[in-house]
Design a binder for these strands. Structure first.
Lengths: 251, 251
DNA sequence: TCACATTTGTCCGTATGTATC
DNA sequence: AGATACATACGGACAAATGTG
């Protein structure tokens, strides 16, 4: 009868390591524990929570995978509160993408549509600080390519900075997740300086359009840019998957 | 060896439990292990990998949190390959949302923009099977509200079905993640049958517009629907956060 | 209903590798 | 270079849960 009560009550018996991890997690949410704070060692935590070390370890494993803490080994090491959690979502995203075996066209389509929306908001909401970040990003990427290095991470970062200029955290998280997938695709390809240069140029053009408030042009440029990337990605990827007998040797 | 690959993957695959978890994960990716397959017990895995049981447990913990396996206790229990991984992303999303303390307006704005895009693709790509799923969803929700029950999960599901009709897995994953956040917000509010009925009605109208190929109308209806939900959400939420000394009592 | 076997959950002791001082 | 502190990892043990006969 009382369906509504049981509906939201997980009858799941909580395991001790889950209680420990959620306890620590909630301390982080409440900002009692802040980024770069150091947690007690495993042994100390085990004593304080009155549980075994293995239990603590599994709790720490969860927090680590969820991106709340990083763990350093050695003296003065131990669990440390992380400042970012987003790369964890990206990892989950990557897993899901791999499970669904998503192809480049599908990825590009979704990316294009969502980034257009985000760019639109970025154009309207970007302040001088955002513009400065974007300019520095492009400049750094430019210098790198001029020195005959690829600007891989900078070119990924550009899109994250655009998302941040939209002033909407949800957009930021979504774009970060998608860019992780894009980066994963890109990382499998062989380096190509010319392509990297073209990307930097495209970013520069988009940024200039944003600065001079030519919103429609910025979106058109973004569209062209992403479709161009897709073509290059597709070509390289086909070449790669042709000899795709990638087997990890047994040991 | 292959330095170029390790350049962007300085992931320390050093720890033993990580090697174990990635090994099992890759078996899942290669479909050697399929959903509902049963993995050996911890002790058996420890023997086969020639590692300790603690190491196996930490590897299983990772796989469990990543959504690849579920674990049952007791005889004939053990780790089982899951068929879905998406709820994991949603959990990470929820964590990130909580960290950034995202508000309802921000969430609705992003949701609206992204869902409009997705709906657009759903209108163009939905086949008869998608329409049938959506119709059944609305029908089920309707019956539930007529029997004076809320159609909570059905109303969430409606938006996921819309995303699936877009025929783009990336959209599906993104929408699922966002809806997890929405569901989280909603679950904190007190049940309200009238609101649930209004939502079902809105879904029905949107679905009818899709069926009769009135794309623009469908989008307009969606827009109205989401904004209406936002208003209700905001009102209820303000009421809720007024007496917000929410403390989880120890038991 | 009642044992029984299986498997996870948890704790403890110990040993080793590693980073810091 | 040596001592210290910490994570990592192994093995043994028992409790709790759960399905089977």
């Amino acid at each position: 009868m009382n369906v509504s009560e049981t509906l939201f009550k997980p009858i799941k018996a909580k395991r001790t390591f889950e209680e420990v991890s959620t306890e620590i997690k909630s301390l982080i949410f409440k900002s009692v524990l802040k980024p770069s704070d150091k947690l007690p060692s495993e042994i100390a935590l085990a004593r304080q929570f009155n549980v075994g070390r293995q239990t603590v370890r599994e709790a720490l494993r969860i927090l680590e995978l969820s991106g709340f803490i990083t763990i350093r080994k050695g003296a003065r090491g131990g669990p440390i509160i992380s400042d970012t959690i987003s790369n964890t979502i990206s990892n989950s995203f990557l897993d899901a993408i791999q499970m669904k075996s998503i192809n480049i066209g599908e990825l590009t389509l979704a990316r294009l549509e969502i980034e257009k929306v985000v760019l639109n908001h970025a154009i309207n909401n970007a302040d001088s600080s955002d513009i400065k970040d974007l300019q520095e990003n492009v400049l750094k990427a430019k210098r790198k390519t001029e020195n005959r290095f690829q600007a891989f991470s900078e070119n990924i970062e550009f899109h994250k900075l655009l998302a941040e200029a939209s002033k909407n955290h949800v957009f930021v998280i979504v774009i970060q997740s998608i860019m992780a997938v894009v980066a994963d695709f890109l990382s499998r390809l062989e380096p190509n300086l010319e392509k990297s240069k073209r990307v930097v140029k495209a970013h520069e053009d988009i940024l200039n359009a944003i600065i001079s408030k030519r919103g429609d042009e910025a979106i058109t440029l973004l569209e062209k840019h992403l479709l161009q990337v897709e073509v290059e990605l597709q070509v390289s990827y086909d070449k790669l998957t042709r000899n795709d007998s990638v087997e990890s040797g047994k040991s």
